[in-house]
Computed example of a mutant assay.
Amino acid sequence: MNEKQKLYIDELAESQGVAFSMAVEQGFDLCSFANMFMLSDARNHMDNGSAYWMTMTPDIMIDKLSMNSVDKATMNYSKTMAEWLGEFYARYQYYTNIPSSKIVKII
């Protein structure tokens, strides 16, 4: 992987982690949000390298997602845990090249 690719995935992983953290902060269930996000068209575009989605700020990303199917939290998850999970999913998808929709079913 060249430096340019590494910067791209670092930026995406950080943004996705913050988006997961923001979802928890807004009272959404972490598992429900992660499932919705990994199966979303937005994440599919990221899997395919869409610069539009890969460079989007987390707050705009959350605003563009349909949160209607995401459950409200019944447990408290830390923002740190949510951020780590979001970053993990982004990096795992990038390094394995497995579509996010399949990763969420495996994990």
Rank of each mutant, 00 (worst) to 15 (best):
F37V: 15
N2V: 12
E3H: 12
S101L: 03
K72Y: 06
C31V: 14
N2W: 02
M1Y: 02
M22Q: 06
H45R: 00
D41S: 15
A51S: 12
N48Y: 11
L85H: 02
S21G: 09
N44S: 14
D41Q: 05
C31D: 06
I103A: 05
Q93Y: 00
A90I: 10
E87C: 11
G17F: 01
N48T: 15
E14T: 11
Y94S: 04
M75R: 10
M22G: 03
S69W: 02
N48A: 13
Y92E: 08
D59C: 13
Q5W: 01
F28D: 07
E83P: 01
G27C: 02
N48G: 12
T80N: 03
N68F: 14
K4E: 13
M36D: 14
K102A: 09
R91G: 07
N97L: 06
S101D: 11
Y92V: 15
E3Y: 13
T74I: 15
L12P: 00
A34F: 04
A13T: 08
D71H: 03
V104R: 01
K105P: 01
Y52T: 14
V70Y: 07
M22C: 10
Y92C: 12
M36Q: 07
G86S: 09
T74H: 05
P99C: 05
I103P: 00
E83D: 06
N35Y: 09
S101V: 09
Y52S: 11
M56G: 00
G17W: 01
S78I: 11
A23I: 12
S100E: 04
E11N: 12
N68M: 08
K102F: 11
D10K: 02
T74W: 04
T74D: 10
F20Q: 01
T80S: 12
Q16S: 13
D71Q: 05
V18G: 03
M1V: 09
S40Y: 05
K105W: 01
Y8A: 14
S101Y: 06
I107M: 11
Q26I: 10
